[in-house]
Design a protein around this nucleic acid. Structure first.
Lengths: 66, 66
DNA sequence: CAAAAATGTAAAGTATATTTGTCATTAAGT
DNA sequence: ACTTAATGACAAATATACTTTACATTTTTG
């Protein structure tokens, strides 16, 4: 699964730390998701969806390997 | 977070077991998600999205407590 | 350039997702 | 009513998300 969280962050012009605080997780969690170190929970994805103002499928996309 | 997986299953007319096999998880995992025993990963949500033919936000919705 | 802010990463600990196996209960079919 | 299929649930084991702390590197800004 790939994601475009970095792009969404750029659109909102916020840092990883600010995004983390907005949705109530640690900065490292945001960093790890952006760098594909692990797959977030659906609740976290929905919180990002709410903040970004667009559906989960817009910034999280399945890859062939998934 | 609440979900309408049971409804989506009814639309496709498939059992928990069949759904589980389609997306490559155990039947208990599907059952547990339907019954809100735990929150699935975003990859699992995207696989359901693909199978259901609709965005994740359509069948997974945040609640006030989230 | 120098300082500060932002990012990347790692280790250790905790919480929770997911599996497999199993059994009880309910629903559906004959 | 009987049989089978489907669902709900639990326990133990394993995998992985997420936290906190900490530090190095990169980027931004004065």
């Amino acid at each position: 699964m790939k994601n475009t969280i970095k792009v969404e962050r750029a659109i909102l012009d916020i840092t990883q730390d600010e995004l983390a605080k907005e949705i109530g997780v640690s900065r490292q969690t945001i960093n790890s998701i952006e760098k594909n170190r692990y797959v977030p929970s659906t609740v976290l994805a929905l919180k990002l969806s709410k903040l970004f103002g667009k559906p989960v499928n817009d910034f999280f996309v399945l890859e062939d390997q998934d």
